[in-house]
Write a protein that binds this DNA or RNA. Structure first.
Length: 592
RNA sequence: GGCCCAGUAGUUCAACUGGAUAGAAUAUCAGAUUUCGGCUCUGACGGUUGGGGGUUCGAAUCCCUUCUGGGUCACCA
């Protein structure tokens, strides 16, 4: 039982004893720095149960608690806040548990229901860009956080591998590609295919101009450009299973997948399963029939099928075209159901998709509920804002996108520039140095993106790039590396049993209090799908450590028991930084 | 136009989901330290939480209204 639970019980007991009234819940919060105390009971909310002066109530509860609970040594009351001071012994006992558990704060999975997290989900006609980077980092981090909070997690993605956009790349390659391959050009497969997507667009634009010169309107020109017609024809052939088209499609997609894998590896993300739209785009149709029978859907005169959501404050939404073909919504319905068949222990899903699809997912979840799936209540759209550049929106056709691979390389070289002067990597091989620079560069990028609330849009300045000071990934990594240096020089064995009796210095106590928050942070981050909470926690911990570092001498302390405690405490901080960063997918270097 | 999201120090972000005097970083200025590792630490300056109303012991947070920016309202995905 945690101290909070125990305090809560005592307070409820106090209510019965003192006032003969039962109390529902007790509200705790960490005591603000400006007041003395370690934990605070909010008495305001209790006034609903019992009519009395909040300060007097605080006094009486404080007196009761310090008498009945060993850990409470003092208390003070400010308005409706009862601040409790806890004993050193309590903190030292806590410290022992931290030292004994290298994954303190992580909850091992209970084997009830799993969560499926979908993220990335790219189109296969162009390389990944900065927007995908945010998606990948968020999806991966949320998965890790959910795992740490005790959930079983399946990471997946749905690859948009069919459609007119792929045909455009295929057509341009067929016409202008001269049998180029990733091997012959040395290009990553996704880059090669992306280049032909751009090529298509160039030719398309020229053709539109020509048609306009012949007197056609812009609308007509756009619809009648020969290269577009040819691409549309190619899509029809693909759908008909034309052998030549399908084989070209397989070939080019294979190049793209190989390219994506390289990027995913560089980003440090991974997946447990893959879904392909070419295999799922027909899936939902059978459920439309079922929905019609249940009265969830209605058929119009032209044969198209709709879901009327006006009573829920939304519009009517089409789920099947008049010609009987599926739309986006249809396949998402089918895919969701399919996933639960494939993974029977899944009880909920998280879709990591940009906020421009907020409406789509609102509708999707509602339809699945109406179809009667009980898991539909456990669906979450992890919606995130766009990544903007100072120059404005990213447009792939205008060449203003920030390519994911380029970005990673750029971040590493910035890290190199900064770290080289510092020269603590002596004795490292060139390879090890390069790895360290990549770790720092990626750390900067990931932290920069993840520390912001997903809902908010990010302004990313590639020129000014990412700061290495203040609330940044490298600053936290740097603190970790500094602690490692201390541990290397330490004369004491950190594996020794932690002390139990020790008079805590203020700064030591603050650090312990900060460590204590970690399990709660994980749970909260999991229920809010918010890596930002973890990021900001790590930074607070580092600040607390620096303050400790400045105020006490670790290796030069007076007594060996002091050295031993402080070294062990430093190690616990380092471990927690490492664990917190692992939830963000960020590595920590031993030196930097 | 309907619906959704965001708006907080000059700038980038917080604020435990309704709690104490709205906090950090950065930038600027002033100091401490010169070392266990250099980018450490302590101050100062900086705010009508876009504006206006309301709800209550208490509001950046909830409600109404209004302004600004973005998204979305496809038989595209």
């Amino acid at each position: 039982m945690t101290l909070q639970e125990s305090l809560s019980q005592h307070i409820k007991q106090a209510f019965v004893t003192l006032y003969n009234t039962p109390l529902e819940t007790v509200e705790f919060q960490a005591t603000r720095k400006d007041f003395e105390g370690d934990i605070t009971v909010v008495t305001f909310s209790m006034l609903r149960t019992i009519k009395m002066n909040p300060a007097q109530l605080g006094e009486e509860l404080g007196a009761y608690l310090s008498e009945h609970v060993d850990e409470v040594v003092r208390y003070n009351v400010v308005k409706g806040f009862l601040n409790l001071v806890l004993s050193d012994a309590y903190f030292m006992t806590f410290f022992q548990t931290v030292c004994a558990n290298p994954t303190f704060g992580f909850v091992s999975p209970s084997d009830d229901q799993a969560v499926m997290v979908e993220y990335s989900s790219p189109n296969t006609n162009k390389p990944l860009h900065l927007g995908h980077v945010r998606n990948n980092l968020l999806g991966y981090s949320v998965s890790e956080i959910l795992k740490a909070s005790g959930k079983k997690v399946y990471k997946t993605q749905i690859i948009n591998d069919r459609g007119i956009h792929i045909c455009k790349s295929m057509l341009a390659w067929q016409r202008y590609g001269n049998n180029e391959t990733p091997e012959s050009t040395g290009l990553k497969g996704d880059k090669l295919v992306g280049n032909y997507y751009v090529k298509f667009d160039q030719v398309y634009k020229e053709e539109i101009k020509e048609l306009e010169a012949k007197g056609l309107s812009t609308e007509e020109a756009k619809a009648q450009a020969p290269i577009l017609l040819e691409a549309q024809d190619m899509l029809l052939k693909w759908e008909a299973g034309d052998a030549a088209v399908v084989s070209l499609w397989e070939q080019m997609n294979a190049w793209v997948y190989a390219g994506f894998e390289v990027t995913y590896k560089a980003l440090g993300v991974n997946f447990d399963s893959y879904y392909y739209e070419s295999q799922t785009y027909l899936l939902g149709k059978s459920f439309i029939q079922e929905g019609l029978q249940k009265g969830v859907f209605i058929k119009k005169e032209d044969g198209s099928v709709w879901c009327d959501l006006t009573s829920d404050g939304l519009d009517e939404k089409i789920v099947l075209r008049a010609d009987g073909t599926a739309v986006y919504m249809t396949q998402d319905i089918g895919t969701a159901i399919q996933r639960l068949k494939d993974f029977p222990d899944v009880g909920g899903m998280v879709y990591t998709v940009g906020n421009e699809q907020d409406y789509h997912f609102k509708v999707l979840f509602l339809i699945l509920k109406k179809l009667g799936f009980d898991w539909a209540k456990n669906l979450t759209h992890l919606s995130y804002g766009m990544v903007d550049l100072p120059s404005g929106k990213m447009k792939s056709r205008e060449g203003t996108v920030v390519d994911a691979d380029d970005l990673i390389v750029e971040m590493a070289s910035t890290a190199k520039e900064i770290s080289q002067e510092l020269g603590k990597l002596e004795g490292y091989s060139e390879l090890e140095k390069a790895e360290t620079y990549t770790t720092i560069g990626l750390g900067a990028l990931k932290y920069f993106i993840l520390k912001v609330d997903p809902k908010k849009r990010i302004l990313f300045d590639p020129q000014a790039s990412v700061d290495f000071q203040g609330n940044t990934g490298p600053f936290i990594q740097y603190t970790y590396a500094r602690i490692q240096a201390i541990l290397r020089k330490s004369p004491v064995e950190t594996k020794d049993e932690p002390l139990l009796e020790y008079a805590l210095h203020d700064k030591e106590k603050s650090l312990l209090k900060q460590l204590q928050l970690f399990p709660e942070v994980i749970q909260q981050a999991a229920s809010n799908y918010s890596p930002a909470l973890v990021a900001n926690y790590a930074y607070d911990l580092v600040k607390e450590f620096n303050s400790f570092y400045q105020n006490v001498s670790i290796l030069g302390a007076d007594s060996t028991s002091e050295i031993r405690f402080r070294v062990q405490l430093s190690q616990a901080v380092a471990t927690t930084i490492k664990n917190a960063f692992s939830l963000l997918g960020i590595q920590v270097p031993e030196r930097m």
